[in-house]
Computed example of a mutant assay.
Amino acid sequence: MTLLSVSSLDVSLGSKPVLDGVSLTVEAGEFVGLIGPNGAGKSTLLRSIVGLVPSAGAIEIDGSRAADMTARQRAAKIAYLAQDRDIAWDVPVEMVVALGRAPHRPAFAALGATDRMAIDEAMRRMEVDTFRERPATELSGGERARVLIARALAQETPLLLADEPAAGLDPHHQIALMRLFANLAAEGRSTIASLHDLGLAARWCSRLLLLDRGRLVADGPPQAVLTPERVREIYGVTAFFGEADGRRFVQPLDLVGDGQPQR
């Protein structure tokens, strides 16, 4: 089942072209890593899919034209986790996570049993259930990140878009998050996660999309996308490549030459 189809997507911010002819599809049961250097267009791609950035081209979400969908209809199909981890409201963690249920119930309606089960499960999976009553504004940066991921999980959508979800997390919670996304894929749901950590991307994602200067330059399994030549050319670094437990791993080592990507 195709959850997302993007065809010839172009985006400009002001007078600056950011995305140029990007096309891709995402099927049910995929954990897709969106990688590329700073400024490649990763965040813009995710934002354009959920309708936060004007774009030219075609986007279909679960078989429906995104342009014909209301914001509520999109939110029932796609959960979006932004880079911004700020929580401005002095409310309990559980209330923040409960916001993920908004697309599934009428405005101002009380939470039902199904909502509470989804909220509890999301908090458990992100290991934030032990401080459900704490004010969200008193959390550390990593704790806030996990609460906002839990909010996206509580939305229970077929597709999750996550912009740098591992940023600010310690190694334990980074790996736990990657395991979670892999488990979601096994359940038939899909995730597109923007990642700067090539090691996490190579080891945990079933597929990688590599953006460079607004173009999709590679799409495939990690071992095909993350090659020494491509890492050197796109990122301007050398890296150590290996395998552990049948999975590829990549560890950047040093800059190439003067440290500039080799164009």
Rank of each mutant, 00 (worst) to 15 (best):
A154R: 13
R151M: 15
G214A: 09
L177W: 13
P171Y: 02
L211F: 05
C205S: 14
L177E: 12
W204N: 01
I175W: 09
L200Y: 00
N183C: 14
H173D: 08
A193M: 06
A150M: 11
H196R: 06
L153S: 08
R203Q: 14
N183I: 11
A154L: 13
L211A: 01
L198H: 11
A201F: 03
L153W: 02
L169H: 02
P165H: 10
H172A: 15
R207F: 13
E156F: 06
L200A: 08
R215D: 06
L216C: 07
L148W: 04
R215S: 11
I192A: 03
R213N: 08
A182C: 13
R151Y: 12
L177N: 12
A202C: 08
E164V: 03
P158H: 13
L160M: 14
E156D: 15
R151S: 14
A152M: 08
V147I: 13
A167T: 10
L208Y: 08
Q155H: 06
R207L: 13
P158R: 07
N183P: 11
A201D: 05
E156R: 14
L184S: 09
A167V: 03
T191V: 15
R189Q: 14
R213A: 10
D163R: 04
D170M: 02
A182I: 09
L184T: 09
L216Q: 04
G168Q: 02
A154V: 14
L200C: 02
D163K: 06
A166E: 10
R189Y: 12
A150F: 12
R189A: 12
P165E: 04
A167D: 02
A193R: 07
R213W: 00
L159M: 10
I149E: 03
P171H: 04
A176L: 10
L208I: 14
L209M: 11
A186T: 00
G168M: 04
T191L: 09
L169K: 01
L210R: 06
A166W: 03
L198R: 11
A176Y: 08
L180H: 05
R207W: 11
L153D: 06
L216E: 05
A154Q: 14
